[in-house]
Amino acid sequence: MSDGLTRSPRETAAPILKVDALSLSFGGLRALSGVSFEVQDGSITALIGPNGAGKTSMFNAISGFYRPSAGRILFDGEDISRERPPARAKRGLARTFQNIALFRGMTVLDNIKLGRHAHLKTNIFDALFYRGRAHREEMELRQEVEERIIDFLEIQHIRHAPVGALPYGLQKRVELARALAMRPRILMLDEPVAGMNREETEDMARFILDVKEEWGITILMVEHDMGMVMDISDHVVVLNFGQVIAQGRPSDVQSDPAVISAYLGSGDLAERIRKTEAA
């Protein structure tokens, strides 16, 4: 358990992730301009904003798919802006995707095991003979995946099922499982409950809270479900047209006039919160 439980995340000194004046453009389109925010160790930070605000682009820049035109990304105080995605993964940066990026032909178990890739040492020679290290590692991995992840996320019944055959809500859960297998320090979730019904959403919110509190993993999530964002986040960053227009505690952000007007185009924010909470 992390001591983030007893301390409010605002008081923990060092941010685990720091985005510093980041800009990103696609051709002429500026998707992000001078975005800065911090993610405190042990917190749940939500990145919100209307569609097209640049949230997914921000995630892609952090995980290393897009090369920003200016600015830096610091992980644990170290500049990772020039690193390839695998190097960032190795540092403990894990993520899920808005449109689920699982390996559809593989089983749930193999998908989750892939999450551990960077931490395993089996080389091609061990693998061909499946002796010694290969065998030992695979057995340890299987046991840990079963006991820590599959049990935790309650997906025992589908472990051998090919992912492509699963309903959407379960696929989202498997993607979370795979990210957890990476033993991340920070977990980035892109719309973890989009398209889920109320019950699935509540399950997912509980898993996210448990991941933070029991596993001590920092969460950065993009989410449109305002009820959930307000319920579980410690810190909220609001993007609009590629710029940060507000950030702070959920209650402060909620009543910020800039935020309310940004959401006017896509439905009143307070209205959305009431609707999702009533549903």
Partner: peptide
């Protein structure tokens, strides 16, 4: 044997979706 281990899984991951393979540290 290869496809019971991380090496074989990484090959398949690249075949099926190389973007997410990279995010997993491959």
């Amino acid at each position: 044997n290869l496809f019971r281990t991380r090496v074989g899984r990484a090959f398949i991951a690249i075949r099926d979706r190389d973007i997410s393979a990279e995010v997993l540290g491959i």
